[in-house]
């Protein structure tokens, strides 16, 4: 008979025992960081002037452009005409200093909206359904959505079918332009399931998550909203020459995609009419849940 200590099972157990007690703390904090962003009612309000001389002032989530959030070493109120993250050295005189962000995210994504007319004009989390897209441009902007032949898109259902056809999908959750999930668990999918919800004080708020962020004590959360262009409702942060490519029959266009250095060089994209956070939120702990106000109108 073997001595008990010669049995492989017992020897393995003895080896694993001290390992089980081992927990090595690397001192690195990597976790999801959550919070809320708030845009003032004015940032969701726009006055449209029509050719017949009439005007219409609208407050709507569809006026709210994509919000870009970055984590920076600090926010400087004096370097530009609006608060802006601190910048590194200027290497090329034609290029601003890099902000060297620690991380970031966006609330709302410029999405492919299936017709060339909408390239760089639609943000996820703003439109309840496809009808809301068609109606917005037809009834409010007074510049109806057209197809590749220049014919006015008749309905949301037509646009939805176009998206399903081009993307080879069968569900709104795969297109992700419209509200497609019951985020607030109230049993229905409606306007309250968009990114932004209007509060009693008129401001709009939205939750954000920065996924798996490497935490650095003292870094600051800062962000800005790319407001739609008054001229054609497009977003400057979107590159119309890139993105999903459609090349079918008479349609030949790109669906647009975000530039890849928005957080590094915000000042390249921020222009008159955009909103920025007047102050950054400085983190002392990764568990803090800030409320960042995007409240400074760039003029």
């Amino acid at each position: 008979m073997n001595h008990p200590l010669r049995s492989n099972g017992l020897r393995s157990a003895l080896l694993l025992l001290p390992l089980a007690a081992c927990t090595y703390d690397e001192g690195i904090i990597v976790q999801d960081m959550v919070g809320t962003i708030v845009v003032p009612e004015a940032a969701a309000t726009r006055t449209f002037a029509y050719e017949d001389g009439t005007e219409q002032t609208v407050t709507d989530t569809r006026v709210i452009g994509p919000i870009y959030l970055g984590l920076y070493a600090s926010v400087d109120a004096n370097v530009l005409a609006y608060p802006h993250p601190e910048m590194g050295p200027i290497i090329d005189p034609d290029v601003p200093g890099d902000t060297y962000p620690y991380g970031g995210t966006a609330v709302g994504d410029v999405r492919f909206a299936c017709v060339e007319f909408l390239t760089c004009k639609t943000v996820s989390g703003r439109f309840m359904d496809y009808d809301a897209i068609v109606e917005w441009f037809r009834d409010v902007v007074k510049d109806p959505v057209t197809d590749s032949s220049g014919v006015e898109v008749p309905s949301g259902d037509w646009l939805k079918q176009e998206c399903y056809d081009l993307l080879f999908v069968t569900q709104d959750s795969e297109v992700r332009i419209t509200a497609y999930e019951d985020r607030n668990d109230d049993g229905v999918i409606d306007e309250k399931d968009l990114d932004f919800v209007q509060r009693s004080d008129g401001a709009f708020e939205a939750p954000f998550t920065i996924f798996q962020q490497d935490f650095v004590e003292g870094f600051s959360l800062w962000g800005w909203m790319d407001a739609p262009s008054p001229a054609d409702q497009s977003f400057r942060t979107c590159d119309p020459t890139e993105g999903f490519n459609v090349a079918e029959y008479d349609a030949d266009f790109y669906g647009g995609t975000l530039y890849d250095n928005l957080l590094n060089f915000p000042s390249n994209y921020i222009e008159r009419g955009d909103y920025v956070a007047s102050t950054g939120f400085t983190y002392q702990s990764a568990d803090e849940t800030p409320e960042l106000l995007i409240d400074f109108l760039v003029e």
């Binding site: 600090s74 590194g88 050295p89 290497i91 090329d92 060297y100 650095v216």
Partner: peptide, 18 residues
Amino acid sequence: QVRYEDSLGNVVPISANE
């Protein structure tokens, strides 16, 4: 390549090649 240190003391190696 130069060593840039941001205000939090974190070092970013950057290229000053123009």
